[in-house]
Computed example of a mutant assay.
Amino acid sequence: MDSQTLKNLVFNIRKKHGFSVEVIPEILGFHLDEKENFMTVVVADRPDKSAVFGPGGIISKTLAKQLKLKGVTVKAQTDVLVRRFRIKLAIKRLREIGSQTGSREVRFVVGRRLIPLLKNGLKNPLTINLFKAKPSKKNLAVVAFSGGVDSWVTVVVAREAGLNPIAVSVSPEKWILPVKTRKLIKSLASTYDVPLEFLKGETESFKQIFFDGLDGKIHPCGRCKRLIEKTVVDYAREKGIPLVLFGDLLPTGNYSAHLIGDVLRFNVLAALNLTKSETVAIAKMFNHPGTSFTYGCPMLREIHKKHPHLTYPSIQRVLRETRAGILEPSQALKYVKSILGWFKFLKEKG
């Protein structure tokens, strides 16, 4: 099969479903992963991607069914160009850090692990091809593991890259990390033989954030995130581990890495410019059940119910991730619906 045959199939599927066929999407090529029975279609631009994907993925799902594939994903060449550029920025940033730091351990993980990992992403921007290296005898990374798909993929990427990571979950109370999530965290870490620690952190400080949020004084995420980061970095420093990894997808390029004293803080998935669809796919490959696209922790959802005006910063975060190309519009809509769940709560209460 060639690109023209694929164009014809998409044209016929769109016509059958009653969609516009005045313009035929520009399909540049495709990659078929025979092992996974999965196809990646490369198109020219975002409108071409929308046309091949279709509302709710109806066109790509129908295409997969006709070709007897497990699935079809669509990549725009414009997005691939942006991804390559962002990865190059992240590599440049790591090289700057490697030349500036006095830590031999940081220089080692930058030069022998992180830059090769990003170069692998440059070579394989269309496929899920994790960088693999011989496991270190020492623990070279601490990963902040919340139980979500992004943080689990961060654990997986670190493990495959030979960083011998320790996963740490900051859990001062059940209103941040529910029992069900703790069980999932333990199960995943145990299945893949990843050392796991639960850290309480500064419990009273977390409680103050919760109470201030319930009083409507603050949106808690910024302060909570900084406190979690401090807890994880302090743990790494205490253990003499040079690298901490977080699963945030937004801080790409130059903003993906910085030093906190003698510890390197690195958003590896953002540096690779991965999307939510890709992290969900990788997470499922490594036994994670996936995501329901519910926004925030139980504490935040309770604050949303009590103070509807505090939903706006949460929605803004979703919009920023959509603008960055991390979320597809349909995924963003699910998050926004979950944030606005307080409408249903108020209706039931009334």
Rank of each mutant, 00 (worst) to 15 (best):
R113N: 02
A144N: 07
G213L: 08
L94F: 03
A44C: 02
F266H: 10
V42T: 06
I260E: 12
S136M: 01
N37M: 02
Q4R: 04
L310M: 11
A236T: 09
I59K: 09
K75T: 00
A141I: 09
R95M: 03
S330Q: 14
S99W: 04
P178D: 11
K180N: 08
L117V: 02
H17S: 03
I339P: 05
G341E: 14
S330F: 08
N120G: 06
F210V: 09
D150R: 07
V156R: 06
G222E: 15
A90Q: 12
D45K: 14
I176L: 15
G296R: 11
R317W: 08
H309V: 07
K61S: 02
V43D: 00
A283I: 06
L126G: 01
D45G: 01
L214T: 05
P178H: 10
K337A: 07
K75H: 05
I59M: 06
F131Q: 03
K134F: 10
D2A: 01
R112N: 13
R301L: 05
V194M: 06
G201Q: 13
C224G: 01
S20Y: 13
L28W: 10
P298W: 05
L346H: 15
L346Q: 14
A133K: 08
L300I: 10
K347M: 07
A76G: 04
V143L: 08
L140I: 04
P116D: 07
L32H: 05
S151V: 12
T181F: 02
K7G: 04
E321F: 03
V110G: 09
T127F: 00
L259Q: 02
K276W: 14
E321A: 13
S169E: 05
K138Y: 09
V23N: 09
V52E: 01
E302D: 15
V72F: 04
T322R: 08
E22Q: 12
K334F: 00
Q4D: 01
K306N: 13
T311I: 11
I303C: 08
L117H: 03
S277G: 03
L243Y: 09
P220I: 13
L28M: 14
L272C: 03
S256L: 13
D215F: 08
H31Q: 01
K132S: 11
G57R: 02
D212P: 02
D193K: 15
C221Y: 08
E238G: 05
H309L: 13
G121N: 00
K305Q: 14
F293I: 02
F286H: 12
K61H: 01
K35E: 11
L243S: 13
P220N: 15
I59Q: 06
V233Q: 14
D48F: 00
